[in-house]
Amino acid sequence: APPAIGPAYRELNCDDPETEQAALVAVDYINKHLSRGYKHTLNQIDKVKVWPRRPMGEVFEMEIDTLETTCHALDPTPVVNCSVRQLTQHAVEGDCDFRVLKQDGQFHVLFAKCDSSPDSAEDVLKVCPDCPLLAPLNSTKVVHAAEAALRTFNAHSNGSYFQLVDVSRAQLVPLPVSTYVEFAVAATDCVAKEVTDPAKCNLLAEQQYGFCKATLTEKVGGEDVAVTCAVFQTQPVLPQPQPDTNAPTPVGASVVPAPPPAPMVVGPLVV
C-alpha cells in the first residue's frame, strides 16, 4: 500500500462553523484577559490548521484579525453589543495567533499572542481628510487633558474620589484647538468633596471602574473642559482558569478578574 500522503493536520475552511466557533472562543479569551485598551471583535480568520492531539482532542492553530470596539476593556458590556471603531475614528486592528484545544466538544485556549496597530494616517486621511488622528498617550497635551478632565469630574462628584487608571485613546483636534481623550478611572475609599491628599486614597476592595470621554478646548487665557463618565457596576474578584503557563498574555494586557455575567452600567454621570 502506498504510504499515506498529505498533511498531518486537518484542513478546514476558514468560514467553517467549527473554525468560527474556535475563533470566537479565542476572541472572548483576549477580551476577558485585557485590563487596558478596548475590547476587540472578530473581523477575519486568516488561517486555520487542525492538528490531532494525543491522547485525545484536536488543536486549532489559527491566525485571526480583530478590530477594536468602542467598549473599554473594563466595561462589562458583552462585546456583541459593542460598536466597531470606525475608520473615521482612526480604527485599530489586532493580529492574533492562537492555539485552541477542542476536547469533548469544548474549546479551551492553550496559547494566545496578539499585536495591535492603528490604521495608517494615509488611509484615515484618504477616507476623511479632516479627521483627527490618534495622538501618543504620553504626550503632554493628552496627559494634561485627562488630568484636567478627571479633576473636573471629581470636583462635581458627590460620591467617591476617582483615580486615573489609564488613558486609552486621544486625538488632537485642530479646530477649535482641543484635545479629545478617553480614559479609565477607579473608585477610591475617599469622598470626592473631602479629598485633601489624593495620594492617601486607596482603591476599593470591591473594584469599581468607570470610563470617561473628555474634550479640553484651548481658549484665550484658559481652557474649557467637558467630561462624561460612565461608572460600571462593581466587579467581584473571581478565580479564573488559566491557560498553559508558557502562553503569553496578549500584548499590552494583564490578567484581570472576569467581568460579572450580568453586566449593568451605572450612569453615565455627566459633568
Binding site: 500522503i5 498529505g6 484542513e11 478546514l12 475552511n13 476558514c14 468560514d15 473554525t19 468560527e20 471583535t41 472578530l42 473581523n43 477575519q44 480568520i45 486568516d46 488561517k47 486555520v48 484579525d65 478590530l67 466597531v84 475608520l87 480604527a91 486592528e93 490604521d119 488611509d123
Partner: peptide, 27 residues
C-alpha cells in the same frame, strides 16, 4: 512489448478557502 505501469494520480485536496470572510472592513 514493454509498457509503463499505470500510475494512479493522487487526488489533490482542494485548497480550503482561506482567509475567510471580512466581517467589518479591512485596514
Amino acid at each position: 512489448k514493454v509498457v509503463q505501469p499505470g500510475v494512479v494520480a493522487a487526488v489533490s485536496p482542494v485548497a480550503p478557502p482561506c482567509p475567510g470572510r471580512i466581517r467589518h472592513f479591512k485596514i
